[in-house]
Structure formats: structure tokens, C-alpha cells
Amino acid sequence: MKNWIGAFSVIDFISVGILITAVAMNALRRLESCVKAYTLNSWLLSSLIAIVAFMMGETHLYIASFVTLLSKGILIPMFLRRIVKQIKVTHDVDPYISNALSLTISGILVAVVYTSLKEGIFVAGFSKNVLQISIAVIFIGLFIMITRKKAITQVIGLLFMENGLFLAGFSLTFGMPTVIELGVLFDMLMGVIILGIFTIQIRRAFASADLDKLTILKG
């Protein structure tokens, strides 16, 4: 039992790490740093799954952990880095709101999530924090998508959301069946590739990677 409690605190520790990387995204302006934040986030996610797998002794969770590491921790970051290089944009300058404000708002978001889920629908899991954190990560991912102008940061925001969703699903069910997880991951990969190509095309068409240029398409 003691062991378990210790393990739980490790899980809490890692999940807080996940939250922090997400919140940190709000303050990052360099695109490469954003990708790095995402990479770290994915590694933390993967290790969390690995620890749970170790504790529960479930083999298929190891697979999930490995696949997460491979795709989200290695492949997608690699791909993102290539896009960053190709579009020749290094910074996501002039966001809609300042760093300080966006950090504050993401803090408020976390607080809102925590207060609303205080009693919680969560009963069966291993940590009281994981679900709240995962929901908060989803919201922060969405919030990043709102405040950033570059298409590539939008993609990263979306990826954060997906990580949050993955974590939420995991915390509620101890992992979905492997096939579904694989499918979701594959979807993710394809999504990122498509979005990447999209970003490059936007840049080509509008001579800018800013998404607000798309408003001129409106009639």
C-alpha cells in the first residue's frame, strides 16, 4: 500500500509537470521553444503511462506508452521542426494578448477547472489531480489556439489539447484498448502532417503564416 502511495505522488508530480509545460507554452514566443515544450509534455505523458503500466502490470499500457513516445515524443516534434525551418518564421510575434495576461488567464482557467471539478465525477482512478490537470491542459491548448496567430502554433495548441484528452481518457479508464489508441495516434500523425502542409501553403499564398489573413476570404 505504501508503495502505491509513493507511486501516486510520482504520478501527481509528473502530471503537474504536464500542466506546467502547457502553461509555459503561453509564455514562449520562439517556435522552436514551443516545439520543445510540446516534446517535453509528450515525454512526461509517456513516462506517466509507463509508471502506471508498471504499477498495474498491464502489458498493453507499455505499448501505449511506447507508441506515445515514438509518435508524440519523436516523430511529430521532428516534423514540426522541419516545418518551422521551411516556413522561415522563428517567432510568433505580436500575439493578441500579452504574455503576462495570457499566463494570468491560463492560471484562471486552471482555477476554474479545479473549482468546478472539486467534488468531481472522478472516483475510480489513481490520483485526484490527473483528471483536473488533463481538462486544464485541454483548455490551455484551446486558449493557445485562440491567442496565437501563426498556423504552426495553432497546430501545437491542438496537439496539447490532444495530449490533454489522451490523459483524461487514460485517467478515467486506465487506457483505452490498444487498437483505439493506435488509431487515435495515427489520426493525430496524419492530422499534423496535413496541417503542416496547410501551413506551408498558407504561407505561400498569403506571404505570411498569420491565420488572421484568412479573414480576407470572407465575402
Binding site: L109, F139, L142, I146, T147, Q154, L214, T215, K218
Partner: peptide, 24 residues
Amino acid sequence: QSGSLHLYLAYILITLILLLIFGT
């Protein structure tokens, strides 16, 4: 209906938060 992607995402976020607050 401004055509801005960001604004549309903001609608989603606001809706989600409201759901979260009033839904639980």
C-alpha cells in the same frame, strides 16, 4: 461571424467553460 479563426475558437472555449461551470 467575423471570419477570424481565433474568434471561433474563443466561442468554443467560452462554451466549454460555461458547460463546465454550469454543467457540474
